[in-house]
């Protein structure tokens, strides 16, 4: 690792101030960033740890029924505390990485990084959630802008993510067996006004909504409504774990499984 200055503020206000420094980088749980630093793939002048800021941690319910998760909330806490209100989201969080990773990794860290094979982006986009930062609110549809790319600006910190709670939902992940990242993961959520389907792990553009499946499921929420359907292979990732065509096929399979799992 290259050297850097380390700061660990205890308030959001101090964190925002610290992020004003040149080449400052926010540190969530570090489960992706620390390995990245070890490989010298990043060289921030300053790391601002968000781990001691209690005001961006925790799970609560908004007046409109949405579930609000602090950006600094670990996967382990989401698994425990969202289990009653949003079981599909809790289950997704409880299957990220391994238990020790889930005790450190955070929601904000995951979606700020926007790894194309991460689980959380599928839940955030699939729920039509709102990403709240220290300066503004960003709709999920505007937030994810490409592989490892988001709408976040310099020094912007994710303070909260608000998830509207669906009537039913489920996430199904086909794990890449070594890394346990999603080779393909699909989050399906049925709301009063329609169904959302978000796919991670598959596309070169990062997480995306599969609109044909959404239209079919909004008319008939059953696996049968997706019979024989799969998105085009064009634009899907292709590597030694799976070709573009294989990933496209898996999207269809995992979406049908998610619909069945949602019940």
């Amino acid at each position: 690792m290259y050297e850097f200055e380390f700061e660990r503020p205890t308030t959001l206000a101090d964190a925002i101030k610290a992020m004003g420094a040149e080449d400052a980088q926010a540190l969530g749980g570090g489960q992706t960033l620390i390995p990245t630093l070890k490989q010298r793939l990043a060289m921030p002048a300053k790391l601002v740890s968000l781990g001691a800021i209690d005001e961006i941690k925790g799970v609560c319910k908004a007046d409109d029924g949405a579930l609000c998760l602090g950006g600094g909330t670990t996967h382990a806490v989401v698994t425990r505390e969202a289990a009653v209100d949003y079981p599909a989201l809790a289950a997704l969080a409880g299957n990220i990485g391994d238990p020790a990773v889930r005790n450190r990794g955070t929601l904000g860290g995951s979606i700020a990084n926007n790894d194309p094979a991460a689980c959380y982006p599928a839940a955030v986009l699939g729920s039509g959630a709102t990403v709240v930062t220290n300066t503004r609110e960003i709709a999920a549809d505007e937030y994810f802008t490409g592989m490892f790319e988001t709408a976040l600006g310099e020094g912007e910190i994710i303070t909260e993510v608000r998830f509207p709670v669906p009537e039913k939902a489920a996430y199904q992940k086909f794990e890449q067996p070594a890394s346990r990242f999603a080779l393909v993961g699909v989050f399906v959520a049925k709301y009063v006004d329609g169904v959302r389907v978000a796919v991670t792990g598959a596309s070169e553009g990062g997480v995306f909504r599969w609109s044909e499946a959404e239209a079919a499921l909004s008319g008939d929420f059953s696996a049968g409504a997706l019979d024989g359907m799969a998105p085009p292979a064009e634009g899907m990732m292709s590597d030694l774990h799976g070709s573009a065509a294989y990933r496209a096929h898996l999207v269809g399979v995992m979406t049908r499984r998610a619909v069945v799992a949602a019940g």
Binding site: F6, R8, L27, G30, Q31, I34, P35, K38, L47, S49, G51, A52, A76, D98, P99, A100, V101, N103, R104
Partner: peptide
């Protein structure tokens, strides 16, 4: 690289990988 778990310790009661956390985060 935070995969093998040989470095697991408990920080405030939670199992974590000590190779994937900075000492200053354990203040």
């Amino acid at each position: 690289t935070s995969q093998c778990g040989a470095c697991v310790v408990h920080v405030d009661g939670d199992a974590v990988k000590a190779c994937t956390m900075f000492a200053l985060e354990a203040e």
